Computed example of a mutant assay.
Amino acid sequence: MNERHLQHIIPSHPTSDGDGVKIRRVALFDQPVADPFLMIDELLSDNPDDFIGGFPPHPHRGMETLTYLRLGSLEHRDHMGNKGMINSGGAQWMSAGRGIIHSEMPAREMQQLHGFQLWINLPAKDKMQPPKYRDVSATEIPSVTLTNGVQLRVIAGPWQIDGNNIQGPLNDLAASAGYLDIELPAGSNLSLPTSVQQNIVAFVYQGQLQTQPLAPEKSLLVFSKGEQLTLNAQSDTKLLLLSGESIGEKVVHYGPFVMNSVAEIEQAIQDYNAGRFGRE
């Protein structure tokens, strides 16, 4: 069976977004090896000053977000009237389509926050579709513990785990994207069959895998094409594993807008400024 191997290591960088929220970011807009994934942010702090300002109302077009919380609470509100709160272990999916204006705000009494936001590209044919939103509680997300102590949470997509087919609650993501949260004890390993049509990337947010070369913590790992992926933990390791079909289209990115041409970006800005964002 053709095994996947580490192909690229893309480091994360500290930055801030929203109302001064401190994050670590991996930007992938000019990284076709990670297609269809555009960006992943990690929010991690036990100091409310780092995150309490949240993300006040802002627009998006042409992409999807998937927000997953390990610890804390975030409330989503948007111009379509959607409102939802996710708590520790929950997830929110939003497909911006032709346009959405939303906010993501932490609970005021919260003292800790640990979560991730993933941006997934939309193919050109879907960029002007109506926006969509769904939140998923922690109890809806399947959890699997293997005999070697490896733990997995299946957030999106179908996966074959230990001979069983397990489907995450979010199964309508762009590019048939899949999403796992994995914890591997030191010295353990995990083998997963994978589709050769899908790109596989992993964000190691704690610990270190046995790779050549060794990838530092808080890095995104891009794997080669193959039918099988094996992860070996050098230390206690936690990571997000993402799979998705390559879209293979030009990406033009400006702030919260992700389109296929400069003209489309300019149109998005005009639509937003004219107050017709998200309309037909």
Rank of each mutant, 00 (worst) to 15 (best):
N2D: 15
E3W: 13
E3F: 13
Q7R: 13
H8C: 02
I9N: 07
I10T: 06
P11Y: 02
P11C: 03
T15S: 15
D17G: 09
G20Q: 06
V26K: 01
A27M: 12
L28A: 07
D30V: 06
I40M: 15
E42Q: 15
D46G: 13
D46V: 09
N47I: 14
N47Y: 14
D49I: 07
D50M: 10
F51K: 07
G53M: 11
G53W: 07
G54L: 09
G54P: 04
L66G: 07
L66I: 12
Y68T: 11
G72D: 13
G72M: 08
E75S: 10
R77F: 10
G81I: 03
M85G: 05
S88A: 15
A91E: 02
Q92A: 09
W93G: 04
S95G: 10
I100Y: 00
H102D: 05
E104V: 10
M105A: 10
P106W: 00
E109I: 09
M110H: 12
Q112Y: 12
Q112F: 12
L113T: 09
G115T: 12
G115L: 14
G115N: 13
L122W: 00
P123N: 04
A124W: 07
K125N: 11
K125W: 08
K125G: 08
K127L: 03
K127Q: 06
K127T: 00
K132N: 08
Y133K: 03
R134Q: 14
V136H: 06
V136Q: 08
T139A: 11
P142N: 04
T145R: 11
G149C: 05
R153Y: 08
V154P: 06
I155N: 01
A156P: 04
W159S: 00
W159H: 04
Q160S: 06
Q160A: 05
I161Q: 05
G163D: 08
Q167C: 04
N171C: 01
D172C: 02
A175H: 01
S176I: 01
A177S: 15
Y179V: 00
D181L: 09
L184H: 12
L184D: 14
S195L: 06
S195G: 03
Q198K: 12
T211Y: 00
Q212C: 09
A215C: 09
E217A: 05
L220R: 06
V222M: 05
F223W: 04
F223C: 03
G226W: 01
Q228C: 11
L229Y: 11
L231Q: 01
Q234E: 15
Q234V: 07
D236S: 12
K238I: 07
L240W: 03
L240T: 12
G248M: 08
K250F: 08
V251F: 10
G255P: 04
V258M: 14
S261P: 00
E264F: 03
I265D: 01
E266P: 07
E266I: 03
A268P: 02
Y272L: 02
A274S: 15
R276G: 11
R276H: 12
F277C: 07
